[in-house]
Design a protein around this nucleic acid. Structure first.
Length: 809
DNA sequence: ATAGGGTTAG
């Protein structure tokens, strides 16, 4: 429909103004003009304002439907305050304008003001329509309770509910109904009032049955009966049934319904495709998609959104990109006019397949963005590890939902920024948001990587308080956290008390046992897992091999290494071989490991050489160790771990000059710590440096640094794990500086909780110095504080004050 | 003047 009025003018034409007396004509002109403003998308604010200004300056007193139009426009543009101001100017708003306002405000989400207007409408002018509008208003704002309450109120005052009332009421009841009883009762009411011949009422009733029947034996039974009885069905009836079946996982019944349809309704196909996508049957979804193309059914934004997002979530990136190309080629719509969800799905697709730049390109080209778009691009950056870009996206976001925080928190954690993760978690709560269980999982994992036990414990307590104690992700994170902080018993308690567990939980618990030298227990758990019919995956075998390696279980390790291919059909990849070589090396079978490397089915990469180098370090095999280090330098010259391993190898052999050479090499090649490592890690590295260079003159500086770290830690809100605090080192005796300082340092680290890295190095250092006395003192302290020193071969297990020194000392 | 349903992010 063409609008005869020119768009630019804001005052009525002279022909109308000529007859000043004809107020009606002027009013009609303004109303039509405002109607035009209203139908523009987006609403033309500048034109509205100039028309409004014109109304005021011309001395024309707006009332009735002009005021309504104006209010309508200001409502739609979310200028509620001004709409309210105009509303108060209406001398006696009639029921029609009130009803308009009620539904407009409700649609805008301002149901409170809608209720205000409704409440102050005198009972004498209320009618069924206004009640209907208000019930719908509540229902659209997820307030089923008040909708139902209003319904009984209107019956109390003697209003006769009509078909539209029941349509709204049924939809509202779906929000609050608990059982089928309520459905049946309402159904009777509908039949009694004779509204059961209206398609919209029956549609609403069907979806109510679908929602309430979920717990019953045949959830779709009543809905199907009703559907079959219907004389007339429209698009929505079919949609409701199909999505109902989909929700119950009865995809075959849904498909039967679709195939039995006489006319091919596009919405029904869309519902079916989205059902397949939701349940991960991508091949079926794509088959149906192809069928739609062949049958000549029009494909719309919903079709494309489902298909593309399905491709994204099931890893079919190539097909997803093909669909994207297909849309562009067929000229379905110019790319600039793609609907928001389609663009969102595309951003997700390119984010997930790692092409985050392409995702960004689409994101930037979008005229309209919502929180989903922002979250999609954010998780795109997070998953490829571009934390800086993720950070800038995070701070540029117009609104941050729970998911946003969660993505950013676990993004920090996954990329090694544990501190930032905890800081963000705190900030989230300071802003008054209640973190979801995934956010807790992220923060708890951050504690695991930082070794912050006490902080982790507090989060555990808060997690329970928030009612997330049955959360899978949080439970799995807790197992990892307790294990990494040395409290394997606590990890076990979590594992045993979790109401639901998945393969990740099994893996986490096996890791926990393996880390603490309980190799046999880990293998027992593995068997238990098999008995529970959980299929082991590649990760499981990585864990099993590591557990065997750390407990010196060579035979068992070999057995499982062979079984994984022959019985479980998992071909060992580079990581598995690396663990296996590690196992051989730790058991002293260096030449065997070296032989295996030469027979590998692929070109050995960094993990393989690193395992060999570490083995050579343990057993003092200098020649092979240097060879392995050379290979590593070629593969990754900037990786600091290689230098540290090599230096440690020399340290064990007492070759100080060579250690110095390694350090020189690092300096020459500009090897630095990767950016973003936590201060805890820095401290650890400082410690390594100190231990490696026993005559380092800067011992004091290191202590000052550690003290600063402690202050920083408190500022960040960490709770120190013990009451130990670093004392003034200056006042300490200087004799035997190394061992004393090492112990102090360890106490310092104990405060930061880093049993594995730091304490083990202290022990090693004390061994080099031959200071057994301090070592024993130190060990007893560890036992006192329930820290178990572990590692299969080299670091032994100390418990109850006893210490099995073996060849270590 | 008022009605029924569906898509996207971990």
């Amino acid at each position: 429909m063409k609008n005869p009025i020119t768009i630019t003018s804001s005052s009525p034409p002279f022909s109308i103004l000529l007859h000043q007396t004809d107020v009606r004509a002027i009013a009609n002109w303004y109303a039509a003009k405002l109607q035009f403003c209203c139908t523009q998308n987006p609403i033309s604010h500048s034109l509205t304002q100039s028309v409004h200004a014109n109304i005021i300056t011309s001395g024309f007193k707006p009332r009735g439907h002009i005021l309504n139009r104006l209010i309508d426009i200001y409502c739609k543009s979310n200028n509620i305050a001004y709409a309210r101001y105009l509303f108060d100017k209406i001398p006696k708003p009639d029921i029609v304008s009130r009803t308009t306002l009620i539904s407009a405000y409700s649609e805008l989400g301002n149901v409170d003001f809608a209720k205000y207007i409704f409440d102050e409408t005198p009972l004498s002018i209320r009618d069924v329509v206004s009640y209907n509008a208000m019930i719908t208003g509540f229902s659209h704002n997820n307030d089923g309770y008040n909708a139902v309450k209003l319904f009984s109120e209107m019956r109390k005052y003697g209003f006769r509910p009509d078909n539209l009332t029941f349509a709204s009421l049924l939809s509202a009841t779906a929000l609050v109904a608990r059982d089928e009883k309520e459905c049946k009762q309402l159904h009777c009411n509908v039949v009694k009032t004779g509204t059961d011949s209206f398609v919209s009422v029956l549609n609403a009733l069907i979806s109510l049955y679908v929602k309430c029947g979920l717990s019953s034996l045949s959830p779709m039974g009543d809905a199907r009966k009703l559907f079959n009885q219907m004389e007339k069905r429209d698009d929505l009836s079919w949609m409701n049934m199909i999505t109902g079946y989909v929700r119950n996982g009865e995809l075959e019944s849904a498909r039967e319904l679709l195939d039995g349809m006489n006319e091919k309704l596009q919405v029904a196909y869309n519902a079916m495709i989205s059902g397949y996508v939701q349940h991960g049957f991508m091949s079926k979804a794509l088959e149906l998609f192809k069928g739609m193309c062949l049958e000549g059914i029009w494909l719309d934004e919903f079709t494309y959104t489902s298909v593309i997002s399905g491709c994204a979530s099931s890893g079919l990136f190539l097909i997803g990109k093909q669909v994207h190309g297909f849309i562009l080629r067929t000229g379905w719509m110019p790319a600039s006019k793609f609907a928001l969800p389609v663009n969102n799905a595309l951003v997700t697709l390119y984010s997930k397949c790692g092409e985050v730049d392409k995702a960004r390109q689409i994101f930037d080209s979008m005229l309209e963005k919502d929180h989903v778009s922002w979250n999609a691009i954010l998780s795109g950056y997070v998953s490829v590890g571009k934390i800086d870009s993720a950070k800038s996206v995070f701070s540029a976001m117009p609104e941050r939902g729970l998911l946003t925080w969660m993505v950013m928190i676990s993004g920090f954690t996954q990329n090694g920024y544990g501190e930032d993760a905890l800081k963000l978690f705190d900030r989230m709560r300071k802003e008054g948001l209640a973190p979801c269980d995934y956010s807790y999982a992220g923060a708890i994992t951050a504690c695991a990587s930082l070794g912050a036990l006490e902080h982790g414990r507090q989060l555990h307590a808060q997690l329970i308080q928030s009612g997330f104690n049955s959360s899978l992700s949080a439970g799995n994170a807790l197992i990892t956290m307790y294990a990494r902080c040395g409290v394997v018993e606590a990890a076990n308690v979590v594992f045993c008390t979790m109401p639901y567990i998945d393969s990740v939980s099994w893996n986490a618990m096996m890791t926990a046992l393996g880390q603490h030298g309980h190799g046999l227990k880990a293998l027992k758990l593995f068997d238990l897992m098999l008995q529970e019919n959980i299929k082991p995956d590649r990760i499981t075998f990585l864990i099993v091999l590591t557990a065997c390696s750390h407990s010196g279980l060579v035979k068992e390790g070999c057995k499982h290494f062979q079984l994984m291919d022959s019985v479980y059909g998992i071909t060992p990849d580079e990581d598995h071989y690396a663990r296996f070589i590690d196992l051989l090396c730790r058991a002293g079978k260096i030449s065997e490991a070296h032989g295996l490397i030469q027979k590998l089915p692929f070109k050995p990469g960094a993990p393989i050489w690193e395992a060999l180098l570490n083995g050579c370090r343990i057993h003092g095999n200098m020649e092979l160790g240097i060879q392995a280090a050379d290979q590593l330098f070629q593969l990754a010259p900037q990786h600091d771990g290689t230098y540290i391993l090599l230096a440690n190898m020399y340290a064990d052999a007492g070759r100080k000059e060579d250690m110095a050479k390694v350090r020189m090499m690092m300096r020459e090649r500009g090897v630095k710590k990767e950016p973003g490592c936590s201060w805890l890690e820095v401290a650890n590295k400082v410690h390594v440096f100190l231990v490696d260079d026993t005559s380092h003159p800067k011992v004091h500086e290191v202590y000052t640094y550690l003290k600063e770290l402690e202050v920083k830690m408190r500022k960040l809100g960490y709770v120190p794990d013990t009451k130990y605090v670093l004392h003034d080192i200056e006042s300490e005796q200087k004799e035997n500086a190394l061992s004393t300082h090492s112990e102090r340092l360890a106490v310092g680290f104990g405060l930061l909780k880093l049993p594995r890295g730091a304490t083990v190095r202290v022990l090693k250092n004390l061994r080099i110095c031959g200071d057994c006395h301090t070592a024993f003192k130190f060990i007893s302290k560890l036992v006192e504080r329930e820290i178990v020193v572990r590692d299969g071969r080299r670091f032994h297990h100390f418990r109850n004050g006893e210490c099995s020194c073996g060849n270590y000392w």
